[in-house]
Write a protein that binds this DNA or RNA. Sequence first.
DNA 1: GCCGTTTTCGGCCCGACTGTTTTCAGTCG
Length: 613
Amino acid sequence: MSINAELARLFSEMAAVMELTGANPFKTAAMNKAARQLKDLTFDIASIAADKKRLMEIDGIGEGMAGRIMEFKQTGRIREHDELIASIPPGLLQVTRIPGVGPKTAKLLWEKCGVVDLVTLKEKIDCGALVGIPRMGEKTIANILKSLEFVEKSSERTRIGIAMPLAESIVEHLAAMNGVERVQYAGSLRRGCETIGDLDIVACSTNPGALAEAFATMAMVEQVLTKGETKVSVRIHQGMQVDLRIVPLESFGAALLYFTGSKEHNVALRERAIKRGMTLNEYGLFPDDYERRQRRRTPPPSEGGSQGVGTTEISSGDSPTPQPSPSRERVKSAAIASKTEEEIYRALELPFIPPELRENRGEFASEIPKLIEFDDIKAELHAHTRASDGKFTIEELAAEAKKRGFHTIAVTDHSKSSALAGGLSPDGLRAHIEAVRKASERAEGITILAGSEVDILPDGSLDYDDELLAQLDIVIASPHAGLKHDPDRATARMLRAVRHPLVHIIGHPTGRLIGSREGINPRMDEVIAAAVEHDVALEINANYRRLDLRDTHVRAAVEAGAKIAINCDSHTVTDFDNLRYGIMTARRGWLPPHLCINTWSNAKLMKWLKSKR
DNA sequence: GCCGTTTTCGGCCCGACTGTTTTCAGTCG
């Protein structure tokens, strides 16, 4: 694999250890940012690792990071990383992954009672060794124990196709309550990320208390983690944490913006607000006056001060009682913008930025293009029938596609090497082509294409000979086996398939399965360049277990002007429903509709397909 | 450690909640 992922891992680890040992938090943040940038790169950093100037052109990579990257390229390690890792017990970082235990607590537990990993933590709790340590009260210890048990049994992040239906059912449940004015999911789910950590729900209600109670007592709730006036967190039986934030109706847009994130996008938005003399929080965009001055412990503005917003009671002189959230109190009178995301972006002199782009990956610097939408898709070009491993007959498949409003469906069963998936022998494929042609003649209102999802063999050749491939209307070439090849071999293999004159689409180009199989790591910039040169489309396989191409690959492909196909790889009726995840991934890759062959008219699509025959 | 409509120094986002505190630190998102 390319060194990007390894370098990203090293930088993340360094940042984590630095947090633990109490380094400058801004230095830690810089380290984390560099790790993230490296992870998102679509070319191999090794190719420029000898050139410090080019390294430093990457946002977040400065003098220091460039030096570390060069050191790694030359020596295969980063000395500073080795030293940091050696400075703490090897299992201590695991301890900071327990919800509620941060770097400060982990360090405290290590120094005060010898906790060095999850095992010793459990032992020390069981034998009562934590009692008496500063800030380690009975409740804190009980919470750590509970979280520890949760960490031990739960898997990490949840795939979007699992998280989305859960979120939708929660939203539906809450929306049906009396007094609920708005309710919507936010967070990484709304941004269309491939996996989701926690679910975030934003809601407005005329009866916030009842809403909080209803949320905390849903049937799926396993444990209530926190329950305050505006924020409730629960853990559900499915293993996820769900956070509900209740805000005033006037603040819905600001809250939705804030809780949709990403964190990096929010930070950039706030910096932008400050530069324009404003401050942004989850209640709205405000003139930069009262709150910031108060935080700096300087006196609040005098009566009739320059801002002239003294219409609320927040600064009621010498009242010793703590005030509930000045921002929330001020919303009605003082917010420059708060009701909708659109008006907040406008006030910050920005166009509306779609949630999928909110990653601080250039959305502030660039013009926002028109992104592809669900309704733009007019064809499914990758589907299986009973001839291989699908559940449809050809007619049933066509009927389903027609029902979904498509003008074209491609029948693309597996080729002979995919034996477990019932791949067709050459004679089997010939007979199948005949059957598809006959069905197509009878079909009304939909074009049925005879195709194949043909295996890209380990050497990059295809699973059928050219004479047979030439008879097909559409050829998808996909890797199914040999998914552990090194990058050199994987790149050569994929390039050979891209250059094959009869191939239209490269299916799920890396063969990854999210959370369970890494797949191959061909040098994607080379594959993309070849795809552009040979006029081959790269697939976003919309199955939520794949999402392959992934978002960053799509972005690189779009920048290179490559054609993209978004296909559901349908084997059953419900597979068609995965299209939404493919669309979200495409949007995260900044895909405009015209580059996606599934949006084209039937005539345009047929012309392109025939250009390769 | 990075970065620049605050440009080579001096900033670097903001609020809610919990548990332990007697005024706030730590964590999270």
